[in-house]
């Protein structure tokens, strides 16, 4: 039962996050983002983290997205701008960089059994290694691949924002 809910909500969260990127109107992508946040909140509820879920709704789906939508409405970005940028060179460079990154990610997956700490986290484990060591073990050994993927995504987001802002002259 919970698994079904998790699959539905997780799937909807992923689809709506994709739609945030692909929606043509700025306001629509903002709204898909609200929906995505909402679905993530449902996943928190499934994990029995109700408090986190409520904060997710109030702060992200509520306050922050309200500010973003307010800004979008103020700027009146209703017209869908056609992207007419010379993309030939950047496509070649982009595909090349993608291949390099993919190879690097292959290397990353080799490093997954580097972890110094085995087994579940217990109080004695935390006492021996310290909290920071435990977290870094998680981040840089167990979940290295997702960590790298997220960092690539964030970099792409920053570069994308710069490109989009530069286009308007």
């Amino acid at each position: 039962m919970e698994l079904v809910f998790l699959l539905i909500c997780g799937g909807l969260a992923v689809i709506s996050s994709l739609l945030v990127i692909f929606a043509r109107s700025t306001l629509h992508s903002a709204l898909w983002m609200v929906f995505s946040f909402f679905m993530v909140a449902v996943i928190y509820v499934l994990l029995h983290a109700q408090f986190l879920a409520m904060l997710q709704i109030i702060i992200y789906a509520g306050a922050i997205m309200m500010f973003i939508i307010f800004a979008v409405m103020m700027l009146n970005l209703r017209q869908e701008r056609d992207a007419k940028v010379n993309t030939r060179i950047s496509k070649v460079v982009g595909v090349g960089a993608l291949i390099v990154l993919f190879l690097e990610l292959m290397l990353v997956s080799l490093g997954q059994n580097l972890n110094a700490i085995q087994g579940p986290i217990t109080d004695t484990l935390v006492a021996t290694y310290g909290r920071v060591a435990v977290i870094s073990n998680f981040l840089f050994a167990d979940y290295l691949l997702p960590f790298e993927v997220v960092s690539i995504l964030l970099t792409a987001g920053v570069i994308g924002a710069v490109v989009l802002a530069k286009r308007v002259k």
């Binding site: 609200v34 909402f38 409520m54 709704i57 109030i58 789906a61 509520g62 306050a63």
Partner: peptide
């Protein structure tokens, strides 16, 4: 939850 839903 009341605060959250009223914002939505």
């Amino acid at each position: 939850l009341i605060l959250g839903i009223s914002t939505i």
